[in-house]
């Protein structure tokens, strides 16, 4: 079976400003990011869909000790999209030192930014960013 939406296609979508996920033909659930089957019902009949790109911060942290190759501090957050799926990314418009519990529940808009690849990839990759609405 062909994989419906690959990471490569998702990356191409991000570079065009589109957030690509999957919609299940059977139950209508939006799966984002992509995976082999519908995250809700396990359905295999999936079509590529574009998500709106807005959601709500459910939790966050400020990373002060970064992995090799990254510069701290930066904010990582988990966002519940309006479509119901959850996703991980970087909150980019808040000074890390001012990130506090009041962020939880705030509405955000999705974007993406390029991160330098390390030894695991030859090409730079895009990761999701969040900006407060």
């Amino acid at each position: 079976m062909d994989y419906t939406l690959t990471f490569e296609q998702y990356q191409q979508g991000l570079s065009r400003g589109k957030f690509l996920g999957l919609r299940c033909e059977k139950c209508g659930t939006v799966t984002f990011p992509s995976q082999g089957v519908c995250r809700d019902c396990g359905g295999k009949d999936l079509e590529v869909t574009e998500i709106k790109g807005e959601g709500t911060i459910r939790t966050f942290t400020v990373v002060r000790v970064a992995p090799e190759g990254m510069k701290s501090p930066y904010v990582v957050a988990m966002v519940e999209l309006d479509e119901g799926a959850w996703t991980m990314g970087n909150l980019v418009d808040r000074n890390p030192d001012e990130a506090d519990m009041s962020l939880i529940g705030r509405k955000v808009k999705l974007g993406s930014q390029v991160v330098k690849s390390d030894f695991t990839s030859e090409e730079d990759l895009r990761v999701l960013t969040f900006t407060l609405l």
């Binding site: 990011p33 966050f60 942290t61 990373v63 000790v65 701290s72 990582v76 996703t87 939880i104 999701l128």
Partner: peptide
Amino acid sequence: YESMSGLTFPAVFAMAAHM
């Protein structure tokens, strides 16, 4: 989809603590 945002193990549990 996750570790490229600079996620670390302390970060995962830090997010759990905030939640």
